[in-house]
Simulated scan of single mutants.
Amino acid sequence: MASAAFIESTLTGIPVKRGKVRDVYDFGDRLLFVATDRISAFDWILAPGIPDKGRVLTQISRFWFERFTGISNHLLSMNPSDLPLPADADLEALRGRCMVVRKTEVVPFECVVRGYLSGSGWKDYLANGAVCGIELPAGMQQSDQLPEPLFTPATKAETGHDENVSFETMRDAIGDELADRLRALSIQIYQQGSEYARQQGIILADTKFEFGLLDGEPILIDEVLTPDSSRFWPADLYQPGVAQPSLDKQFVRDWLETTTWDKNSTPPVLPDEIVMKTREKYFEAFQMLTGEACSW
């Protein structure tokens, strides 16, 4: 039986910023990332949350950070006790869902890499024959593999929806050199992750990365190649021409699309069946990618 979803953390007296999923506590030169079990879709945080989801996200990110040894990242420790926590901190609630990380100057763009024609990219292609202004061959089908991975940045929104922008817009904002480096890094990480995931039976259709600057150098931050930030498809079920079954939160989006919700009002509560099936998909992605058993 799954435990109840962990929706919000509390560390008395520590400054905190709460995102859609993570609570980020400021300890001066270090931050504590706490991945809750909140789940969002269409820019809304949904109820009731997915039990243990935050642990899955944290442990998959930990796996990739450790695997990409040649790429600098912000992870310092998986142990929140490495920080001066308040005496009343609930360490059991935090178990498996925390990362102690370096504080960086966050680059204000999502670094999106697309390897397959899906989601908003498919809609864009149907309308324009292009994805984010990048022209593609005629006659492509939904879920087709792209001729080469596409880098399609987006603005980072504190609230509301991230907005796709051109690479030229990104270069104008942060400079040619940094934009070029982030594009190359993003495609490199996607290709390395995609090759490994395919060996484990998962197609990495697309993903998004975040980077921060530390002493002027870009390093990988936040989460990496998780079911929240990526589209994961079971390779043995892959069939171009249709939408694919997923091992990510697309399952929740698909259920919401079957309801009468207008996306502008309070979203419907997720039924128990959807909650548990989503949890199973996240667990399956974790186990396939890492080869590890879930220890919670």
Rank of each mutant, 00 (worst) to 15 (best):
Leu11Tyr: 04
Val16Asp: 02
Lys17His: 12
Asp37Ala: 12
Ser40Gln: 10
Phe42Met: 12
Ala47Phe: 02
Arg62Val: 15
Phe65Lys: 05
Arg67Val: 02
Phe68Tyr: 07
Phe68Leu: 15
Ser72Ile: 01
Asn79Asp: 15
Leu85Val: 06
Pro86His: 11
Ala89Ile: 09
Asp90Cys: 04
Asp90Thr: 04
Leu91Ile: 11
Leu94His: 06
Arg95Ser: 15
Gly96Ser: 01
Val100Glu: 09
Thr104Pro: 11
Glu105Met: 01
Val106Cys: 01
Cys111Ile: 03
Gly115Thr: 02
Leu117Asn: 03
Gly119Trp: 14
Ser120Trp: 08
Asp124Cys: 04
Ala127His: 12
Gly129Cys: 10
Gly133Leu: 12
Glu135Ala: 15
Met140Lys: 08
Gln142Asp: 00
Ser143Phe: 10
Asp144His: 08
Asp144Cys: 01
Leu146Trp: 02
Thr152Ser: 13
Lys156Ala: 00
Thr169Gly: 02
Met170Ile: 08
Asp172Pro: 00
Ile174Trp: 09
Ile174Arg: 08
Gly175Asn: 08
Asp176Leu: 12
Leu178Phe: 12
Leu178Ala: 02
Ala179Lys: 03
Tyr190Pro: 10
Gln191Asp: 13
Arg198Trp: 03
Gly201His: 06
Asp206Ile: 04
Ile219Arg: 02
Leu220His: 05
Leu225Gly: 07
Pro227Cys: 13
Ser229Ala: 10
Phe232Tyr: 15
Phe232Lys: 04
Pro234Phe: 06
Ala235Leu: 12
Pro240Lys: 08
Gly241Pro: 14
Gln244Gly: 07
Ser246Thr: 15
Gln250Gly: 05
Val252Asp: 07
Val252Ala: 00
Glu257Val: 08
Thr259Arg: 10
Thr260Leu: 14
Trp261Glu: 07
Asn264Tyr: 07
Thr266Ile: 12
Pro267Cys: 11
Leu270Lys: 01
Leu270His: 09
Glu273Tyr: 00
Ile274Glu: 13
Glu284His: 14
Ala285Thr: 06
Leu289Met: 09
Ser295Thr: 14
Ser295Tyr: 04
